[in-house]
């Protein structure tokens, strides 16, 4: 079949009213006002509110949902017992757990605990489902990698000592009334 050209008629641009012109001027005025305030604000003692990232870091509020991590107890073991509830709760199916048996009292631990961070959407349902406070949303937000394989986080990479997650765990207890 021969290629045919069909001319599409576009409606000519219409200026519906003079109000749109006013809106442009109003927008420009807002921008200019901020520019002047930031340029000369220091005269009236105004502070910078930007952070010189990555030399400086912002301390996020405990409510921030960063990357999900596994809580590491003081004896070095994970708190997770591989019950599978986070895997079940996860709407994007980014968690994959294979349980195994240990001789310790908890009987069960995750032999494999993988989180596919290309799929995680930071909803925090895993944390909410966890009966052991073993998976929590950390403040870690720097999770870019050089390859797709680097986005698959294994158990060893996910373990974070409990002391560093204290604020989030306390926040969770206040939120869910645990």
């Amino acid at each position: 079949m021969a290629v045919q050209v069909k001319k599409v008629l576009r409606p000519p641009p219409q200026i519906t009213s003079w109000r749109s012109g006013l809106a442009i001027i109003a927008g420009l005025w807002v921008t200019t006002r901020h520019l002047i305030a930031n340029l000369f604000g220091f005269i009236r003692g105004r502070q910078d509110f930007t952070v010189y990232y990555p030399e400086q870091r912002f301390l996020h509020a405990p409510a921030l949902r960063g990357m999900p991590v596994l809580v590491q107890m003081e004896n070095g073991r994970e708190r997770c017992v591989a019950c599978g509830l986070c895997e079940w709760a996860c709407p994007t199916s980014c968690i994959c757990i294979f349980p195994a048996e240990t001789d310790s009292e908890v009987e069960r631990y995750p032999e494999i605990f993988d989180i596919d961070m290309t799929r995680c959407m930071f909803c925090g349902l895993c944390e909410e489902a966890c009966p052991e406070e073993a998976i929590v949303m950390s403040r870690q937000i720097e999770i870019s990698t050089y390859s797709r394989g680097g986005s698959l986080w294994h158990k060893e990479d996910l373990l974070v000592p409990e002391s560093r997650l204290r604020t989030r765990i306390d926040f969770l207890r206040s939120q869910y009334g645990r």
């Binding site: 019950c83 079940w88 349980p99 195994a100 048996e101 069960r108």
Partner: peptide
Amino acid sequence: FHHRLRVWF
């Protein structure tokens, strides 16, 4: 079947 996959999967 001790400490293997969850039945709901």
